[in-house]
Amino acid sequence: MAELLQYLVTGVGIGCAYALTGSGLVVIYRVTRVVNFAQGSFAVLAALTVTTLLGAGLPHGLAEILAVLVAGLIGLLCGLVATGKPGTTPQTALIVTLGLGVLAYAVEILFWGDQPRSFAGLAGSTGGVQTHYLLIIGVTAVVLAATALLFARTDLGRALTATAADPYAARIVGIDVLRMGLLAFAVGGALGGLAGVLITPVQQVSFDSDVALVVNGFSAAILGNLTRPALTLAGGLLLGVVQALVGGYLSTSYQSEVALIFMLAVLVARAGRRGVLEAA
């Protein structure tokens, strides 16, 4: 029983990282229609930045926050490179983000080497589970709620949604469409960075950790058609929990397959349903 609780909490904790990564994808996709395959790199770069900042003597808390801001800035730059040239299609931008992800590998290996790194999170345990998992869950809840409020309750959020819904009309009312896209990339970068910063104390990070994050984050986001934040959160948590249970009771070697099968199942189910609707 205690074991099950342990698996559930770790699963939800890891699932939060997937949900944050997926939410970053969703924010960027909603505003720009670009699927950002560099999304996992934000997490890795932020996590590695924390190790450097801590090494330089910065206190915990400050180092993590700075790293998230750095990830936001990297997101902004990524958006500038991918979408900055007027007339770039979302398809072209997607390819550019893939290229940027590869570039990130080079940067990461150059500055931090290819060995896994980690840093300490919240110490101790609460009610039989590592306290750091509770921190992950709490911070994710607050940040995703704040993101949802930004979109639903502020004029800036409305303008972001408007840009996605009808870029032509957005321009007509004076919304700077390019700037909205860059803002989305910055928010997406910060969300990705937060995923990396939160998860690294319980799961070492190395230059290629972005793959697992982006595959799982993308699977979570796909559940909500890349546009629905609540379904992305649900998808991320589900993936995390299922993987923890599979890893705990069966074998850790199947964990990553779970995400791929899940993503395939959703895509097939959705294609099937659309087929039925069209036939009707």
């Binding site: 409305r158 408007a162 819904a165 009808d166 009309a169």
Partner: peptide
Amino acid sequence: HLFAPLTVDDNLRLGAWR
């Protein structure tokens, strides 16, 4: 060219974005 997912009130608000 309305902003389809937004409410009427939100569409109006964005008319005064500048």
